[in-house]
Write a protein that binds this DNA or RNA. Structure first.
Lengths: 146, 146
DNA sequence: GTATGTGCAAATCATTTGCATTCTC
DNA sequence: GAGAATGCAAATGATTTGCACATAC
């Protein structure tokens, strides 16, 4: 089975919602899927400028909720005063292990999360939509530096 | 074994850091431990005012990092534009299940998190300091309302 | 043609900071 | 008495919004 591209997913979402397909939104989405790893609005805006795009930050801020709503992107909380994001379409579910010293971020698989979600659904009658797990610590290097 | 009170824990932390013991900080801490559940800075400030305290928001903002540093309080992310907090001293570890419709927040035990942390420590050489897990979904009532 | 989307600049709002004063040690 | 902590008001900085113009349907 071949997977739909992120652009296809987004276009179907747009059509279903009677929204409009604009080059700005698709430029932003394409750039997001070219970024390896996490990004914030500023970084994304700069990368787009570098490529000659004139997309404004306002449009980025207005587009991100759409991408999140159709499951292509999610917020990542690094507790540093602003939001970070990452594309999640076509990726294995993962969580983040962040070093409080140097800021390094590792990704790891989440064993047992499916089971946990099923348990919560049964126990509390919820329909689960998603979850986030972050772990913080000190990496080996920063432990020594202490 | 009798547990130290939160005030005792905080005073020891203050002394150890050569900081100063002030009535403002202790009022804030006491109020936090009288609040059942989660709070944000505004709510906390209002509750303190109601009790006749003159503590400013600035002092609350300056005190919270201290409480977090000594393990009495932690941030909770509800993704609604500002931080929420909760006291964690003397509480079982728990995570939050939040309804995207009505905002209800349930707490649940985190089975297997100790094991996960041990695994990450071994696998990546990290000294783990903490973690947060949030799950979102729709509660039974909000599912019907859909 | 109409309603939606965009860029820009201004507004918002939580949090942080500078400073003069007050309080701990 | 020196260094910290406080309250206040002003500054900051990420995000949001109003508006005039452009564009998708």
């Amino acid at each position: 089975m071949v997977m739909k591209s992120e652009i296809q997913v987004f276009r179907e979402y747009i059509r279903g919602r009677r929204l409009r397909r604009t080059p700005e939104r698709e430029q932003i989405l394409q750039e997001i899927f070219e970024i390896h790893g996490h990004f914030d609005v500023d970084e994304l805006h700069l990368k787009l400028r570098d490529k000659g795009s004139k997309v404004s930050k306002a449009s980025i801020y207005r587009a991100l909720p759409l991408f999140m709503d159709c499951g292509l992107v999610r917020e990542v909380d690094f507790s540093d005063g602003h939001w970070h994001y990452e594309h999640i379409y076509g990726h294995a579910r993962h969580s983040h292990l962040r070093c409080l010293g140097c800021g390094e971020v590792l990704e790891f698989e989440e064993p047992g999360m499916g089971r946990l979600e099923a348990h919560l659904a049964r126990e509390y009658g919820y329909r689960i939509k998603g979850h986030q797990l972050q772990v913080q610590g000190l990496c080996a290097t920063c432990q020594e530096a202490e």
